[in-house]
Amino acid sequence: MLFSVLRRLHRSAMAWLRGWWRLLHFAVLIFSLALSPSTYGRAGRPALARQLVLATAPNLMWFTVLSALISLVLIRIVVVTALSYGLSRYALEMVVRVLVLELIPLTAALFVALRITLPDGIEFAQMRASGALDALQRQGADLLHREFFPRVAAGVFAVWMLAAVSCVLTLVLAYLSIYGFTPWALQGYTRVVGQVFNPAVSLILALKIGFFSFAVGLIPMASSFYADGAAGRRQRLPGTHGLSDMLRLFSVILLIEIASLMGNYY
C-alpha cells in the first residue's frame, strides 16, 4: 500500500517537473524565433499579422467598454468613501494605485487567457490527440513557426494593447470623475499621478504586464506542442487539458501579482 502511494507520488512529481521543463523549453524556442529576423520575412508575416488582428481587434472594444464601466463604478466608490472620511486628497492616488497598477493589468491578462490563448491551446491539444498536427509535421510543415509562434505573439500583444489602452482610459476617466470638464486641475492631477508613477513603480508595472503577457501567451500552448503523450491525452476527458493549463496559468499569474505587490508596498 505504501509502495503504491509512493509510486503515485513519484509519477505525479515527475509529471509536474516534466510539464514545467517543457514550458521552459517551449519558451526558449519561442523567444529564439522572436529574435530571429527570418521569422518576420515575407513568408511568415501574413500569418503573424492575421493572428495579431484576430486576437486584438475584436476584443479591444469590448474590453475597453467593460473596463471603463468598472472603472467608473470603482472611481465613484473610492471618491465617495474618501469624502465621507475626510480623505478626499488621497482619492486620486488610491484610484490610480488600485485600478491602473493592480486591477487593469490583471484583468487584461485573465481576459486574453480566457478568450484567446486557453481556447487555442485546447484546440491544438485536440488536434494533437487526433493526429492532425502529426500529419502536418510528416508533410514537412514547420508547426512552431507557422502555427504556434503567431498565436503566442498574438496573446502577448493582446495583453499589452488591452492593458495600455485601458490604463490610459482609466486615467482620463479618473480626471473627469474627480475634477469634471475643466483644464484648471490638470497641473495638480499630473503632479499626483507623477508622484505615484515614480521610476520604481513604473518599472514594476511594465515588468508585471510583460510577465503577464508571456505567461498568457506561452503556458496554454506549451503542452500542446509536444508529440509524446498524445495517446494518453486521447483517454482524458475533453476539458482536462484546458483545466491543467488554466491552473498552471493562474498560479503563475498569482505569483507575479504577489511579487509586484511586494515590490510596490514593501
Rank of each mutant, 00 (worst) to 15 (best):
121 G>P: 03
223 S>P: 01
98 V>H: 01
192 V>G: 10
225 F>G: 04
254 L>K: 02
80 V>A: 15
98 V>L: 15
54 L>E: 07
218 L>E: 00
171 L>A: 09
167 C>V: 03
222 A>W: 12
97 R>Q: 10
113 A>E: 00
58 P>F: 06
232 G>W: 08
211 F>Q: 13
229 G>E: 02
209 I>H: 04
31 F>L: 14
92 L>M: 07
81 T>K: 10
246 M>C: 15
22 R>T: 04
67 S>N: 14
115 R>L: 15
183 P>K: 05
143 L>A: 13
130 S>I: 03
11 R>N: 09
245 D>Y: 01
128 R>Q: 15
114 L>W: 08
112 V>M: 05
234 R>P: 07
30 I>T: 02
92 L>E: 14
65 V>F: 11
160 W>I: 03
77 I>W: 10
249 L>M: 11
21 W>Y: 12
4 S>G: 09
189 Y>E: 04
37 P>S: 09
16 W>F: 12
215 A>D: 07
128 R>F: 00
141 A>C: 08
42 R>P: 01
43 A>V: 12
151 R>C: 05
169 L>T: 15
194 G>M: 12
51 Q>V: 04
223 S>F: 06
136 L>A: 13
105 P>H: 12
161 M>L: 15
204 I>Q: 04
31 F>P: 00
233 R>E: 13
83 L>G: 05
192 V>Q: 15
14 M>S: 12
255 L>V: 15
47 A>Q: 09
260 S>A: 15
94 M>P: 00
58 P>C: 07
160 W>P: 00
59 N>C: 12
3 F>D: 14
178 I>H: 12
248 R>K: 15
117 T>L: 07
89 R>E: 10
233 R>S: 07
87 L>N: 02
73 V>T: 14
13 A>S: 13
172 V>F: 06
196 V>H: 05
187 Q>S: 15
186 L>C: 06
196 V>S: 13
69 L>K: 02
261 L>D: 11
223 S>H: 03
41 G>K: 05
254 L>M: 10
176 L>C: 02
23 L>P: 00
154 A>Q: 05
90 Y>E: 11
119 P>A: 08
118 L>H: 02
126 Q>N: 09
235 Q>H: 12
89 R>C: 01
13 A>H: 07
194 G>P: 09
71 S>E: 14
141 A>P: 03
19 G>L: 01
59 N>L: 13
49 A>H: 02
139 Q>K: 14
141 A>Y: 04
201 V>Q: 01
228 D>E: 08
243 L>Q: 09
